[in-house]
Write a protein that binds this DNA or RNA. Structure first.
Lengths: 146, 146
DNA sequence: GAGAATTCATTTCATTTGCAATGAATAATG
DNA sequence: CATTATTCATTGCAAATGAAATGAATTCTC
């Protein structure tokens, strides 16, 4: 059969392959985070950013960890409600919010970071000599405008 | 400052990196597909599968192109409503649906496949010697259970 | 071959998402 | 320095999502 001239295989199409593998890895993470700690991926990203930088605004999160501002805002509110971060208004610029970890948040982050590091190590071990290629490929793709 | 012992960088965390790059590439595709043809990614995956295999069920799609069955079902209905595919019930097993391309669907697919192939070529050119590493990395990751 | 169990597609419903609107605060401009 | 424009965070709302329910059809089991 003709099959409409062009031979094109979705299974080899990079955007598709990356979407599938990204979902696969995210699920591996989020299953555990959700089951054991009830933390979504968005909340995890906010937490990591706050943990790293000490005091961040919603805008910072949006820029730093690829999280749409409404998503970042809602994640931050949930974390505040759970007592993992505090949310104050920046006194220098009162449009900005200042997110900081609470002690409970700090404790949780130690756990989450440990798990994430283990996961990362597992992935790097699995990938071995292909890790470099993967990383430079990702960097190249991210640098490009599509 | 102590920064909670463990040094962990989200920017180097593979699940995060892959999620970001996957979204980046998908956006490059879907922007054009949506703007020029009003086709979502789910619809695109259904179309490709139907185009490749001639006659498929919703279950086939779910298995072949990583699309949750409700998503596949809804995408198929939209495509039917737009006259791009036909939807009949399989006479051998009347639980199954038989999706097939219409002539209009076939015409559209020629266009979409052409665009996708161009995109793929652009990506492969950009990646050059890193393409192999990326591909084997993806395959390794997909083969693993997380 | 009757009854139970499974498979398939759709739909229902609660939740999530993302865009746009809002309103408050600051910055820019004439 | 008053007006306009911009930035920031939140919220409203319509659409998308996904898990479970539904119901029809088939397969399994006794």
């Amino acid at each position: 059969m003709d099959n409409s001239s062009l031979d094109f295989q979705l299974a080899e199409f990079l955007p598709y392959r990356l979407a599938v593998v990204a979902e696969h890895l995210s699920l591996g993470m989020s299953r555990r985070y959700r089951a054991d700690y009830d933390i979504s991926i968005a909340e995890w990203r906010v937490l990591v950013n706050v943990a790293d930088r000490g005091a961040v605004s919603v805008r910072d999160i949006e820029r730093e960890v690829h999280l749409e501002k409404s998503k970042a805002s809602r994640a931050a509110s949930k974390l505040e409600a759970r007592g993992l971060v505090t949310k104050e208004t920046n006194t220098d610029d009162r449009r900005l919010v200042v997110l900081m970890l609470t002690d409970a948040g700090r404790d949780l982050m130690i756990e989450l970071k440990r798990i994430a590091s283990e996961y990362q190590t597992r992935l790097e071990t699995l990938l071995a000599e292909d890790l470099t290629g993967l990383n430079t490929a990702i960097d190249k793709l991210l640098a490009e405008d599509f």
